[in-house]
Amino acid sequence: MARMALLVSPELCIGCRGCQSACKEWNGLPAVKTVNRGTFENPPDLTGADYNRIRFMEVPSAQDAQRWLFVSQRCMHCGDAACMKICPSSGALFRAKNGAVVFDKGKCIGCKLCGSACPYGLIRFDQANKVSKCHLCHDRTEAGLTPACVKTCPSGALKYGDRDKLAAEASAAGYSNLYGEADLGGTGVLYAFKDSPKVYGMLQNPAFPAEVHFWSGIKSLAYLGLGATVAASALHYLVIGPHKEEGEEVKKDE
């Protein structure tokens, strides 16, 4: 399967948040108790029960007193996913055929390392500390459907499809900034912007964590170290032999 992507176009988003409700419904996620904090935006952050949310931003505008921006936020589904690299459990985070970074709570050990490794800080956990984040509706996409948020989006602000095609369409429609196109091996969630991503509060220069990168490069040293030491010990035993004084006997029954 070609790599698929979710294209977010905040220019088309009307902040209706059908995506948030649809996500909760499809994934059977519980509600989070919130208060009004002096904004339409809620919940205040992604949670293990909120795989996506719309960030509401009021920014200065040349034409009016302000612009009101609505920016979908969720796991970016990195092509080179630090979360997958750091995950100690086999199969807890895996790459789906469509390129999404998907989780298996049954295999998640709840160590939350992925949360620390995520360059965007977008991974959240459920009450049992298991990874709980956008999976681009793995169950739906596997069955040939679009993610629930995309299905619900009334304005076309969320689109799901062939990553290259979506990128080309966005460029053709005049979106000069395709955020995520080249970052981290290319993200599976792309943002079509006409202005700088900074205006939309996007992370500048997301970077793969050096610690994870470096360790991945040297982790085979563990095998090497173990193997070499065992081998050296054996060699020592054969070549130099045990530390035995003359006349000393070793009896098993001692």
Partner: peptide, 13 residues
């Protein structure tokens, strides 16, 4: 994480 892994290698020796 990095230290844990690095010293894991040392322990392997």
């Amino acid at each position: 994480y990095f230290a844990h892994n690095l010293f894991f290698v040392f322990f392997m020796v």
